[in-house]
Computed example of a mutant assay.
Amino acid sequence: MHNCGNIAIIGGGSWATAIAKVVVKHTRHIGWYMRRDDRIADFKRLGHNPAYLTTALFNVNEIDFSSDINRIAHDYDTLVFVTPSPYLKNHLKKLHTPLYDKFIVTAIKGIVPDENLVVSEYFHRVWEVPYAHLACIGGPSHSEEIVLERLTYLTIACADAEKAQAFADVVAGEYIKTKTSADIVGIEYAAVLKNVYAIAAGICNGLKYGDNFQAVLLSNAIQEMNRFLTAVYPAQRSIDDSVYLGDLLVTGYSKFSRNRTFGKMIGKGYSVKSAQIEMEMIAEGYFGTKCMKEINSQIHVEMPILDAVYNILYARSNPQIEIKLLTESFR
């Protein structure tokens, strides 16, 4: 049986905080890299993350905090990366510790800009981490609900089934059910796309389209996702599984969804810039839309929803006209 060894969290946002809460409950010790020393000092003093999910209380004696990513990467066997995808490369720029012998778990539901690679592919190509040492966390999982201990189902994907199971055992608990998968790249692409589709759902909501239409939008979105995944990474997968369809639904419908909130503001007439300023938290789908559009320009899958969101966010198309055209392509 594989053992995950000692585990460290890389990142200081809400999803990082939720995952840290789940892991430390099981292991009683984690390393935690946060960029800012002032945040670490506040966290130690208050017993909770000062900036995100402040109701989640920690025993800080169980946490080895550091703003030195090299020390954390050197001292821990399993590194769980939970930074927003646009910032991943900046964190890694500081890293001189090799990663090829580490177990890397990515909980980043985004794509690495410029490279246009999902995170596991980025670690494989750029950091030479073998696929058997790479895993991802997927499934419908708003961090706010995990901290409230609401029942959540997570999928842990890794090419090495034993390692996937070992990490799944670390995060499983009374309110977290887990299963494993081998489809790491498919799950990561699905997680990028569902953020794009949640922006579309938000835009439609902001334009006063109702629930009837939202259901049609998300039905078409899952078909579009399936076409893309089949083209880019053919594998044995059921697109109606919770890690694909479930994650799409929660991101498209939930009030906790940042991407939906961002889209709703765009639908109501905010500019991209003003919506981003007002949000304060990052809507990964904004970056994901551009990356996916660029990837699809190479493989030419029919993706009308992606195209519509891209046109609205990047080509300054009128949302009303763009969605009207989209409705005519739906069945």
Rank of each mutant, 00 (worst) to 15 (best):
Y175T: 12
Y175F: 14
I176T: 01
K177D: 09
T178A: 02
T180R: 01
A182R: 08
D183C: 13
V185I: 15
V185S: 11
I187D: 03
E188R: 03
Y189E: 01
Y189N: 07
A190D: 00
L193V: 10
K194W: 01
N195L: 00
A198P: 10
I199V: 09
A200M: 08
A201Q: 05
A201M: 08
A201Y: 04
I203R: 02
C204I: 08
G206P: 06
L207T: 08
Y209H: 12
G210P: 03
G210D: 12
D211G: 09
F213E: 09
F213S: 08
F213Q: 05
L217K: 08
L218A: 11
S219P: 02
N220G: 14
N220F: 04
A221C: 10
I222M: 03
E224W: 07
M225C: 06
M225K: 02
R227N: 11
T230V: 15
A231V: 09
V232Q: 11
P234V: 13
A235L: 09
Q236F: 07
Q236R: 13
R237L: 15
S238W: 02
D241N: 14
D241F: 13
S242V: 13
V243N: 00
Y244G: 08
Y244Q: 05
L245G: 03
D247N: 06
D247E: 12
D247T: 12
V250Y: 03
T251F: 07
Y253F: 14
S254F: 04
F256R: 06
S257W: 06
S257R: 08
R258A: 02
R260F: 08
T261C: 07
F262M: 12
I266R: 05
G267N: 03
K268G: 14
G269Y: 05
G269E: 06
Y270M: 11
Y270D: 15
Y270W: 11
V272Y: 09
Q276E: 13
E280K: 15
M281Q: 15
M281A: 14
A283D: 11
A283Q: 11
Y286G: 01
C291T: 11
M292D: 06
M292T: 05
E294R: 10
I295L: 14
I295T: 06
N296D: 09
S297R: 02
Q298G: 10
H300N: 15
V301S: 07
V301D: 02
E302S: 12
E302F: 13
M303Q: 10
